[in-house]
Amino acid sequence: MTAAEQWIAFYTIVRKEIRRFMRIWMQTLLPPAITMSLYFVIFGALIGSRIGQMGGFTYMEFVVPGLIMMSVITNAYSNVVSSFFGAKFQRFVEEILVSPMSNNTVLWGFVIGGVARGLLVGLIVTMLSLFFTTLHIQHIGITIAIVLMTSIMFSLAGFINAVFANNFDDVSIVPVFVLTPLTYLGGVFYSIDLLPEFWAGVSRLNPMLYIVNAFRYGVLGTSDVNVVTAFIMVGVFTLAAYAYCMYLLRSGTRLRQ
């Protein structure tokens, strides 16, 4: 296929992916909006007002970047895992496998679909947060870069999950039992400076801590961890996930008999 034809094929997947999550907006866009609004009301406005300052900011200002990032992560991941597994489950992934599209076109089509949902939900949550606080983004470049890299990384991870998933339980296990707990413990609601030294050290093993703090640095200008380390880590994980996805597609693991 020529580059122009690959572009059309890529655009076809992206368009289909975006139309899919827009068509089922009650399942994809509305739930995070409601959940995050509740977080803002309960943790930010009701409880947060009694907590006082965190890292030099009001508690609401402190939690907003983490909650935005949490929405981006779970939605980018969920979009790819549910869409690609659905295609496998109903066997219409064969439409793609018999076509002359390159593996890169297939992978990036699904990944950009995940990124689109992650960013759209992130934008919705950001807009909602403005009802509760004001956001003065300190480092726009870092904010955009980390949110883009993170959504790509988790879209790739969702793709890997979808390839290996055998049923719908396998699709929800990682978001529910891995992503959400790691994000909760990754400094969304507190600064690790508040933890005893041992638990602060344990927290530093959690990759979510770096992602949340890098985003918080972009928005508020403050972070518990080194932002450069966060970018290197996200970059390395993204490259590793990309390489593994390409291996899975090339080898046909779980896709071709």
Partner: peptide, 10 residues
């Protein structure tokens, strides 16, 4: 139409 797109047809 999507299948046509997978083959690079406008």
């Amino acid at each position: 139409v999507n299948q046509a797109g997978y083959y690079g047809l406008s």
